[in-house]
Nucleic acid binder design. Sequence first.
RNA 1: GCCCCCAUAGCUCAACGGAUAGAGCCGCGGACUUCUAAGCCGCUGAUGUAGGUUCGAUUCCUACUGGGGGCACCA
Length: 550
Amino acid sequence: MREMEEQIRRAIERVLEETGAPETMLSVERSADLARGDYATNAALVAAKTLGKSPYTFAEDLASRIKGALGDKAARVEAAGPGFINLTLSKDALAHLIAEADAQGEDWGKGTAEKGKRVMIEYSNPNAFKEMHLGHLIGTVVGESLSRLIENQGATLARDTFGGDVGPNVAKALWALKKNSVDPVSASDIGSAYVQGARAYEEDDEAKKEIDEINKAVYARDPAHASLWEKGREISMAAFRELWKRLGTRFDFEFFDSDTAEAGMRLVRDGLAKGVFKESEGAIIYDGEAKGVHTMVFVTSHGTPTYEAKDIGLAFLREERWPSDEVIIITGNEQNGRFKTVFAALAELAPTIAAKTKQIGTGFLRLTSGKMASREGNVITAEEFLRSVIEKANEKNDDPLIAEQVAVGAIKFMILRQSPGQDIVFDPEKSLSLQGDSGPYLQYALVRAAKILSYASEDAGGSEEPEDPYAIERLIMHYPEVAARAARELAPNLLVTYLLELAAAWNSFYATEQVLGSNEETYKIRVTRAFANTMANGLALLGIPAPERM
RNA sequence: GCCCCCAUAGCUCAACGGAUAGAGCCGCGGACUUCUAAGCCGCUGAUGUAGGUUCGAUUCCUACUGGGGGCACCA
């Protein structure tokens, strides 16, 4: 019995057709309030108007027809409010779903919406020669969760990340490393060199000139900088990979600016010949104003490609390395405008690639205490932040593995709970709460269920069943729908909200019902396992670790 | 100047055009000798302003106010 929601929708559509209602945009959704039932539809409301009927009377009519169509799957189908139809599943139908949640284990909640599709997703885009900071954390966490959500719908998925390893930022770091004759051994050596270089670039004209020279030289692969450049890049990337690993991310492809610069230049020059781009003051630009996007420089008058040209090169490189049906690029939303221009240009150069590619902007992290300014060097690095949350988690649990799992869970939760694109406001003074709506709250609910299951014996007793199903069961059964919707809308926050509700229902159940040794032991163990599977699978889709104990 | 995004409780966030706008934090008050208290139960509290569309608007449209971001050689 798959996709209960879909079955109900079909039944409603069939019944509507019988009554002669025209096709409408109707919704079938999980009831906001369990007291109303399991599903609600506005079918009567939207159809009554075109039929010229009273919504409520029509709802009553539809309700009884729907009840007939669904047979013994539905216990009650009733008109309510202004003309909603509330539907409550029968005990048997619900029991069947809970049995599935119990039996399917890791497969519970897998969908087929993206089956056969190849999706490439790009995120985390590190700037080699800068340290990973909190901003990267958001993209990384969102990207990983979206990847898992899409995979869960059956897609074949590849993760790629696009690293900046040439350009002015790199030159700034190299300049400072050279100036101080520093032989870098850690990412923070490079990070502080970048800060110094960035400051010098703005304050010191001489330094600016030198940095511009280094920039050009790096583009030209000048051997004078090769060894330091390679070393710096390697140290930086090793640090990124280490953090990615701790965050549960691994990339199938690591692309770099230096891989796309040449192709980007060539493509832009070809486009210039075709009239897609034009020359202006010695630079090659895309004149987007007429098309409602910003005009931007693709190749500078010095003959170096800008990020926009590299993005064009990258679009082709992705296609060459891993042909796909869809490409999703995740960046900070300050780049939304830039991507509109890039896509407008790409649509003229390669319409099929442009059509299947989309960009999603994530919000950035704002501190309540004021802004992080990268030049000031007061940026909080991802690693520092992680360390501080681990310290906090340690107050409750001195096992280092569990403290890290809790910290990663708390951080990911903070990021994923909000709809993507919204800025995340964080008060560093207060630190990250590990109580209430939080990652640890979800983890803890699972730990408690797992503990019960570890005590449960094969020959569980207590064959009685409760009069009515428990509230937690009515939530568990919606999990596959929520996972599917979160993937479809690229919105992990929908899953977070659901899991929060689920955990709350579980904790209430836990507080009021004794599982082991009760008269309904067999029944309750099945519910417990169904819950544990749901929470474990849900956390996995968010990329939040599941500690064994807390 | 032009373009994009945002505005919900004291704070941080939810709400796929629908029913009584949900949570957590903070504060106050409870319960418990049982499977882990990072938990459970209860209480107080909100849609920036003015119009419009709709049977119905936090959601869509217009204007305004306030905030953020972007706009030619930075990424």
